[in-house]
Design a protein around this nucleic acid. Sequence first.
DNA 1: GCGCCTCTTTGACTCAGATCAAAGACGCCA
DNA 2: TGGCGTCTTTGATCTGAGTCAAAGAGGCGC
Lengths: 251, 251
Amino acid sequence: MAIRQIIDFVAIKAACENCRLAALCLPAGLEAPDLKRLEQLVRRPHPLRRGAALFRASDRMHAIYAVRAGSFRTYYLAEDGREKVLGFYLPGELLGFDGLGSGQHRCTADALETASVCELPLAQLQELADRLPSLNHQLYRLMSQEIAHDQEMLLLLSDKNAQERLATFLLNLAQRFGKRGFSAGEFHLSMSRQNIANYLGLTLETVSRTFSQFQREGLLSVERRHVRLLDKRRLSVMAGPGRPASSSTAT
Amino acid sequence: MAIRQIIDFVAIKAACENCRLAALCLPAGLEAPDLKRLEQLVRRPHPLRRGAALFRASDRMHAIYAVRAGSFRTYYLAEDGREKVLGFYLPGELLGFDGLGSGQHRCTADALETASVCELPLAQLQELADRLPSLNHQLYRLMSQEIAHDQEMLLLLSDKNAQERLATFLLNLAQRFGKRGFSAGEFHLSMSRQNIANYLGLTLETVSRTFSQFQREGLLSVERRHVRLLDKRRLSVMAGPGRPASSSTAT
DNA sequence: GCGCCTCTTTGACTCAGATCAAAGACGCCA
DNA sequence: TGGCGTCTTTGATCTGAGTCAAAGAGGCGC
């Protein structure tokens, strides 16, 4: 228990320095005491196993989450059971404000591997926001980024071919990994081909074939879920227009 | 001039009763004096002609707009000049908060026909919002609806075929016209086939062919831009899953 | 009233990616 | 250590929508 607390403490510290929570609180012009109060709100539930849901569509929203470790996927279910993958979330990224308007989540988030989060309880966050205009501003900014991401995806889905889609996706992941201190040239995909395909509006076969093709052309090397980008220059030419910054609420 | 003022006055009154501005101010639990203050912010610029821009991508955002008459389209330009149509806005609908996060618009809005708006200047709106938590809430709700719309479109673009897309689009328009007191069964399309196609991720030829096909099958009658829906039941079966409520920030 | 321009429709052909099918590859658990 | 289930790759075939092309149909200005 004592050990566990030490570990947790280190983790919190690491998270708050790197993660998107910083964008939520630090540059918001909060005074030191306000900032401390915000940090006191943070709760840290137990880790989730692969496949476990962080929240589900139509759940009452009661927190915003920051990924601490592992990764998540959000998706939403059509009435007939088809699912649409909306995004992937890496350590340091925020998710869950899709329900800010209605108070209900509109999509489901589940863990792609064992993962843990920091939780910002909504009630207290809102109370704080009502007194701190700058906090509201941060929330607008975050929702705005969500919109930006979705609109990039609209462009990708209506204009881009399979190669452009996959290249865009990989470069975006690389950028996000890089920004969080991981390697931007070599990484592990925590999502299946099926999930990538669904996210990109393709079939898993097409994704698989396109990976193989990229490898044949020397753009990258791939073995199952391990990817190394060998020629980012050429990849970004392939990815086509629209900042490669697409792929998730991430920035 | 006197006459013009009278007309304007009537128009304001009509707009504030029907339009989405109501969702922004009326049910927000504002006290009467606050509400009056909000209404005093409203400005009414001159009408725009077909093709004229209400705001442009990368413009500094200085207002939220409510469509008073006519209709608008929003689109955004990729670096290579390709454009992607993001949405259409009918009388009573709100647009322009894509820039709430950054203070800059991310897309361009232009008039599809002669059109006019009510304008809520951002500076004053924000000032008011900083003192009225419920107004912030309304803004969250509106942004949230924008996200909901975009996500419906993601589903449409990755899963639906041409017929499903067009059926979804037409039913959505019908629903929105109906909600605003126009006929939900028969209406005029203010946007070209090209715009519809771009919005739906198709080519204009495919849109045109699909219209013809629907007509052959007795689902609707169409002549240029005049559409009459003859069998909504069957159309909504065609449209497939996902509330037909897609198509714009509208609700 | 004529000519021009934009928008729309329709046809013929092509192709990227979906679908169908089957065979490896790996991880997990008993 | 072996067997099973899931994930991935690869091949063969099919098809919906894109592309290219051409002809009608309004609308508008002169």
